[in-house]
Write a protein that binds this DNA or RNA. Structure first.
Length: 201
DNA sequence: CACCGGATTGGCT
DNA sequence: GCCAATCCGGTGT
């Protein structure tokens, strides 16, 4: 399964909601120590400074951690959540706009043995790659890779494998786990492939 | 199956 | 010091 690596044009759109929807059905790929692992993106959420209270860069607050989000689209923002989970985001938009898409789940495709090993599992089940923390673990994504370039095809990138998700196949809901964010918590910025077993219900 | 608490670290006030 | 874009295992129904 070889697709075309997504380029700048895809990531630098100013419309992060559009990019989030377009990421469904794309293939998230990592290559670590020569081992390729990948999964089809089934669930995402958009985050958008400055107006979105759930976004780490709310109010365009730029810190050592969030600085990556202000870069031009096409790099990874990976941060530590609850002290132990590494959450992978795609930075989008032009330089200076802190927009990002959190990848919440994938359907495993390549390197399943390696993903099972990294997760300490024996069987391929939804819990292997469904959930933002576990998918990062399965693909070997770590916060130390925050800022990694997604355009060069070195360690982590995203491919178009010709899969199109129609409006009918797409589910929409408010984002998960952002209750603290006031009104922003209600915005319908989570997108997923309806009926996929690789999406938590 | 629903509910609940503990894990564990670092970012920010 | 407080709490977070989560996960897992235990308990009770």
């Amino acid at each position: 399964m070889e697709g075309r690596i997504l380029t700048e044009d895809f990531y630098r759109s100013e419309d992060v909601l559009q990019v989030a929807r377009a990421l469904l059905g794309k293939l998230l790929v990592t290559k670590m120590d020569g081992v390729r692992t990948s999964g089809i993106i089934t669930e995402v959420e958009a985050y958008r400074a400055p107006d979105d209270r759930a976004c780490h860069a709310y109010g365009n607050r730029c810190t050592a951690r969030t600085e990556v989000m202000f870069r031009a689209g096409g790099c990874a923002y990976i941060y530590l959540c609850y002290g132990m989970h590494h959450l992978f985001n795609v930075v989008t938009g032009p330089e200076g706009m802190a927009h990002a898409v959190l990848v919440r789940a994938v359907e495993p495709l390549e390197g399943v043995e390696e993903m099972l090993r990294r997760r300490g599992k024996k069987k391929v089940q939804p819990q292997l790659t469904t959930g933002p923390g576990v998918l990062s673990q399965a693909l070997g994504l770590h916060k130390d890779m925050s800022g990694e370039n997604l355009l060069s095809g070195e360690r982590v990138w995203i491919e178009d494998i010709g899969r199109k998700i129609t409006e009918h196949e797409m589910g929409v809901s408010p984002r998960i786990g952002v209750d603290y964010a006031g009104e922003s918590a209600l915005w319908p910025w989570r997108f997923f492939i309806r009926g996929s077993k690789w999406v938590k219900r």
